[in-house]
Amino acid sequence: MKKWFAAALLVLSIGYTAYGLSTLTLFTASGRPAAGFFPLFIGLLLVITCAVNLLGDIRQWAAEKATGARHAHRPEPAAEKSAEALGIETAALDGGAEHGRDVLIVFGYVCAFVAALKVLGALLSMIAFMLVFLFTFNRGHTVTNIVYSLALPGFLFWLFKILLNASLPVGPLGV
């Protein structure tokens, strides 16, 4: 994934520079730098550095592939010992195995939450997000999850809307 992220940065950099070149003026009629001058300078630097960066990441990936090295997580012996003494999981001390799937789920929930803001309003979206999140990752604690899902959004709504008088999206229930 590292090389794909580097590739995405390179594509975006090329897009930024090309769009800047096609829409912005580089110099004024009197020869002074105009609105496109600084973006072009930054864009060119970005394209060059992102290209070098991508090459480096591809080389690293190829070398790892050739040697068979993998980034699989192995618990650190020292962390295992400490964790045992403390009665906690080793991952709490050494970072643990990666939970990429959970990241995707949480990020998906955050996107759904933002998408729901204008439809359901702030309070209902917050409650829905909390319920879905907690019933995914904190199963078996039904009462706690429901109470927490009502209490925290209620408190934040009071804090932002009533106390700070902030503008929040309004839903079908008027909140």
Partner: peptide, 18 residues
């Protein structure tokens, strides 16, 4: 931490909108 995650998400999203 599973109880901390929604606090942070809610503060971030509602804060950014507000």
């Amino acid at each position: 931490y599973v109880h901390v995650v929604p606090v942070i998400v809610l503060l971030c999203v509602i804060g950014a909108f507000a």
